[in-house]
């Protein structure tokens, strides 16, 4: 268990709703849900997640901290906003789902091996290194995330597209050597670090 997690548990005792309200983007709207379920039915990824948004909101109110923060559901959100436009209580469900994902991630409670979450991590790490995405490396890292054999298989299956992009100069093979970054890389890193510091402070993650 991480320290941040421990601290959060202690601070909010048994009141997970309050924890969510304090730490999750738009978390204060969770309590306004009236359990109609229109979000659950509206989500195009519906068949693929474990808990519907409305159910997550009920679990938050019931204090099911571990289940909620360990749920894969919020990582499945594709930001289509169907739930949000239909919600009769106008809950910003999409934002809450992203907020919850972010919070679970920060606490280190997000489910391991959840593919969309892994890809997001990969993307962020790739991006934050040089200030721009190294598409070749991102692709390769993604393909080989499950080991060499699986990676080769996946890469082979996609080779037609890869070659096409290569011919169209959409992928530069030279990027395997690191590729190019933004002009002021140091400045970029400083910006990111500062942003993180501000957000951590806001959300109570100050080390």
């Amino acid at each position: 268990m991480t320290t941040a997690n421990q601290a959060a548990i202690e601070r909010y005792r048994n009141n997970f709703l309050k924890e969510v309200e304090a730490n999750v983007e738009e978390g204060h709207m969770v309590k306004m849900c009236m359990q109609c379920g229109v979000c659950a039915g509206s989500c195009p990824l519906g068949p693929h997640w474990t808990h519907s948004p409305q159910k997550i909101f009920m679990m938050i109110r019931a204090g099911k901290r571990d289940e909620v923060l360990g749920s894969d559901s919020m990582f499945m959100c594709t930001s289509c906003y169907n739930c949000m436009v239909r919600c009769p209580r106008q809950l910003p469900i999409t934002h809450i789902m992203h907020g919850l994902a972010n919070y679970a991630h920060r606490l280190g409670l997000a489910p391991k091996g959840q593919p969309t979450r892994d890809f997001a991590t990969l993307f962020w790490n790739n991006l934050s290194k040089k200030g721009r995405v190294n598409e070749l490396m991102l692709t390769l890292q993604h393909y080989f995330r499950n080991g060499l054999v699986a990676g080769i298989k996946e890469a082979m299956a996609m080779q037609g597209i890869g070659l096409g992009m290569f011919k169209a100069k959409r992928i530069n093979p030279m990027e395997i050597f690191g590729g190019h970054g933004v002009k002021d890389l140091k400045g970029f890193h400083a910006i990111i670090a500062k942003a993180k510091e501000i957000e951590d402070r806001k959300k109570g993650f100050t080390a």
Partner: peptide, 11 residues
């Protein structure tokens, strides 16, 4: 009709 039965959760 598309939706989810919220009592127990069923699509």
């Amino acid at each position: 009709l598309h939706g989810v039965n919220t009592e127990g959760y069923q699509r």
